[in-house]
């Protein structure tokens, strides 16, 4: 592989990185919103969210990204491929993040909420000042774990023509006729990214355990 090929490969890595980052930035708060709505026990809304999470767990990203990219314009929502990719990854990761957040909310000690209420705090204030700072710490390892799964599923966006870190290896080998080197370098880059996140997850997990004492 020459300099030009390496440059192309890094562009692919950058595409994977920024699209995943945007999806995570949107998917984490959306997951929290879904978890809160579900725990609020509003009759129909709860069922819809359960259905959403169940579908999200079962749908392959390749299928979902094709569905959104080809289907959205028919609903009068024109989506360029990048938006379609971000929406797909975001909707998918939000479903899993919702489960992580929900587990943290469920295990939150109720005594704290009662104490805060007795002190005259409003529900919003209790959530913002008491719950969120703590469930954030307990959820973070799970959320980082989910990010590694998002990166591992992200090559699906190549199917709608986005040249990500996986797809870019096709581009390079079409010129060099040597598919093996770019695939190996791309695999190594994925391993570095995911390995770093796994290590981060362990650190965060240790911190969460310590603070849970």
């Amino acid at each position: 592989m020459d300099q030009a090929a390496l440059h192309t490969l890094l562009l692919g890595a950058w595409t994977t990185a920024w699209i995943s980052a945007v999806a995570v930035a949107g998917g984490v708060p959306l997951g929290l919103a879904l978890a809160l709505l579900r725990e609020a026990r509003i009759p129909v809304v709860g069922h819809i969210i359960v259905l959403y999470v169940s579908l999200g767990r079962a749908t392959p990203l390749v299928t979902l990204v094709l569905f959104i990219f080809v289907g959205a314009p028919l609903l009068g929502i024109p989506l360029d491929r990048y938006t379609a990719a971000i929406v797909t990854l975001l909707l998918n990761t939000a479903a899993f993040n919702a489960e992580v957040w929900r587990a943290a909310i469920r295990s939150f000690p109720h005594e704290q909420v009662e104490a805060a209420r007795a002190a005259g705090m409003t529900r919003v204030l209790i959530f913002r000042r008491i719950m969120l700072p703590q469930i954030w710490i307990t959820s973070l390892p799970g959320l980082v774990n989910e990010m590694t799964f998002l990166i591992k599923a992200s090559p699906a966006i190549g199917v709608i023509g986005i040249v990500d870190l996986t797809r870019v290896t096709n581009r390079i080998s079409a010129i060099t006729y040597e598919p093996l080197p770019p695939i190996l370098v791309a695999a190594a880059l994925y391993m570095v990214a995911i390995g770093t996140l796994v290590r981060l997850q362990r650190l965060l997990d240790a911190r969460a355990q310590r603070l849970a004492m």
Partner: peptide, 9 residues
Amino acid sequence: MLPFLIYAY
């Protein structure tokens, strides 16, 4: 640590 697709590639 590998995405499935790059492994299949």
